[in-house]
């Protein structure tokens, strides 16, 4: 299981890019923390989510 924004999900083995696409995230408007570190956007495709991992997906909306 992988903990995504506090919720356990059965997505171990998928890449981060696969999960983000399946979950309909707009990849131009997010930042992703994986086990304490920010994942560079260029590495979403090669980052494989493992059992016990935690990720936090932060979404940016407009305004400032």
């Amino acid at each position: 299981m992988v903990r995504v924004n506090g919720e356990e999900k059965d997505i171990a083995g998928k890449t981060l890019a696969e999960y983000l696409t399946a979950a309909n995230y707009d990849m131009k408007r997010i930042a992703v923390e994986h086990n304490g570190d920010i994942v560079a956007v260029a590495r979403y495709g090669e980052t494989v989510l493992m059992d016990g991992d935690g990720i936090e997906i932060v979404s940016f909306v407009g305004g400032g």
């Binding site: 131009k28 408007r29 997010i30 930042a31 920010i38 560079a40 956007v41 932060v58 940016f60 909306v61 407009g62 305004g63 400032g64």
Partner: peptide, 18 residues
């Protein structure tokens, strides 16, 4: 980060953090 546009915010945040 104090931009207005959502995509600019995300690009900047990812850039600084990386």
């Amino acid at each position: 980060e104090a931009f207005d546009d959502a995509e600019c915010k995300a690009i900047f945040a990812n850039n600084v953090l990386s």
